[in-house]
Amino acid sequence: MAEINHFEYGWITPALSYALSVLGAILGLVCATRIRDAGSTGQKLWWGTLAAWALGGTAIWTMHFLAMLGFAVTGARIRYDVPITVASALIAVVAVGIGLAIVGTGRLSVVRILAGGIFAGSGVAAMHYTGMAAMRLDGRLSYDELRVALSVLIAVVAATVALWLAVTVRRGAAIFVSALVMGVAVNGMHFTGMSAISVHLHERGGEVSGAEVGSLLIPIILLVIFGVVGLVYALLAAPTDEDRAAAAYLHARRAPAADPPEAAPEPDPVGLRARSTLARPGAQFPSRRDRPLR
């Protein structure tokens, strides 16, 4: 059995992976709060997609790949199958998205949170072991079944807690603390699953196909940067409750006031008598001769 080192570069890779998972969790939880405030189905779908990308793509999958940089096997070169690696990323995003849809639609209940957590957690575990299946080396991988089961349990619990936080937490300080807890859970699941691995090298060395870690690192870093920048921009550009209230106030101030009804003119007694006299048939004004002398 070959010697395995999970921290080839010391504590740099686990520290960066934890920071990345916390950042993704913060963005995901903030996007999840916008789902509850959305007024239309299209807006809910938009924020749900962003939350799934932040949680499943950034907080979970990119954390997994970054932590894998520190995984090394003595006497073996490690490469990765690109299509399977991409498939593992899609599994994480889709699983978290469906979990958010289960929890975020309809009336919130314990059954919905558990169902969403089980589905999303199973997807996260599937992402992890799919990513491990993408690994290519001149040897055979074996897993300790008890530790695999423990990693799946941690993934389900972490996903359940994450979904519960996504639909209940709203304040900034609470979101930050929740993201710290989620980072611990996600990294704990990853390294528990990694500890279940044993590698048995082949006696005769052979050709190993696949992409090296260095060739995948640059596009993944760029994807993370553009993804985080896009999420931050979407959050900053979206109107908040305060923005909507201010816009409604300004609209009410700028709306023209209704014109008051014109007051009816006061009646003129002299004019009324003259008009009533003319209105009678045969009525004439008196001549100068008919006027009495003063």
Score class of each variant (00 low, 15 high):
Glu3His: 15
Ile4Leu: 13
Ile4Lys: 10
Phe7Asn: 11
Phe7Leu: 12
Tyr9Ala: 12
Tyr9Asn: 06
Trp11Lys: 09
Pro14Gln: 11
Tyr18Ile: 15
Tyr18His: 10
Ala19Met: 15
Val22Asn: 09
Gly24Lys: 01
Ala25Arg: 12
Gly28Cys: 08
Val30Cys: 09
Cys31Val: 04
Thr33Asp: 10
Arg34His: 13
Ile35Lys: 03
Arg36Lys: 14
Ala38Lys: 02
Gln43Val: 00
Leu45Phe: 11
Gly48Lys: 04
Gly48Asp: 09
Thr49Pro: 09
Trp53Val: 15
Gly57Ala: 14
Ala59Thr: 04
Ile60Trp: 00
Thr62Cys: 12
Met63Cys: 08
Leu66His: 07
Leu66Cys: 00
Ala67Thr: 02
Ala67Lys: 01
Thr74Ala: 15
Ile78Thr: 10
Ile84Trp: 05
Ser88Arg: 13
Ala89His: 05
Ala92Leu: 09
Val94Lys: 13
Val94Gln: 07
Ala95Arg: 06
Val96Tyr: 03
Gly106Asn: 01
Arg107Met: 11
Arg107Leu: 15
Leu108Ser: 05
Leu108Pro: 00
Val111Ile: 06
Gly116Ser: 02
Gly116Met: 07
Gly117Cys: 05
Ile118Asn: 03
Ala120Glu: 04
Ala125Ser: 15
His128Asp: 02
Arg136Leu: 02
Arg140Glu: 11
Leu141Asp: 05
Leu141Arg: 07
Leu141Glu: 05
Val148Lys: 07
Leu150His: 05
Ser151Cys: 06
Ile154Pro: 02
Ala155Ser: 13
Ala158Leu: 07
Ala159Gly: 11
Thr160Arg: 04
Val161Phe: 05
Arg170Met: 03
Arg171Cys: 08
Gly172Met: 13
Phe176Asn: 05
Ser178Pro: 04
Val181Gln: 13
Val181His: 09
Met182His: 10
Met182Glu: 11
Met182Cys: 10
Gly183Pro: 00
Val184Asp: 08
Ala185Glu: 09
His190Tyr: 10
Phe191Tyr: 14
Gly193Trp: 00
Met194Ser: 08
Ile197Ala: 04
Ile197Glu: 08
Val199Arg: 03
Glu203Lys: 14
Gly205His: 13
Ser209Asn: 13
Ser209Glu: 11
Gly210Trp: 00
Glu212Ser: 12
Leu216Gly: 07
Leu217Val: 06
Leu217Arg: 11
Ile218Arg: 15
Ile220Gly: 09
Val224Phe: 14
Ile225Leu: 15
Ile225Arg: 07
Gly227Arg: 08
Val228Ser: 09
Gly230Thr: 01
Val232Pro: 08
Ala234Trp: 06
Thr240Ala: 01
Thr240Arg: 02
Asp241Ala: 15
Glu242Phe: 08
Ala245Asp: 07
Ala245Tyr: 00
Leu250Arg: 01
Ala252Ser: 14
Ala252Ile: 04
Arg253Leu: 10
Arg254Thr: 03
Arg254Tyr: 03
Ala255His: 06
Ala255Glu: 06
Ala257Tyr: 09
Pro261Val: 12
Glu262Tyr: 08
Glu262Gly: 10
Pro265Thr: 13
Pro267Ser: 12
Pro269Cys: 12
Arg275Thr: 03
Ala279Tyr: 06
Ser287Pro: 07
Ser287Ile: 03
Arg289Ile: 14
Asp290Ile: 00
Leu293Trp: 10
Arg294Cys: 05
Arg294Met: 06
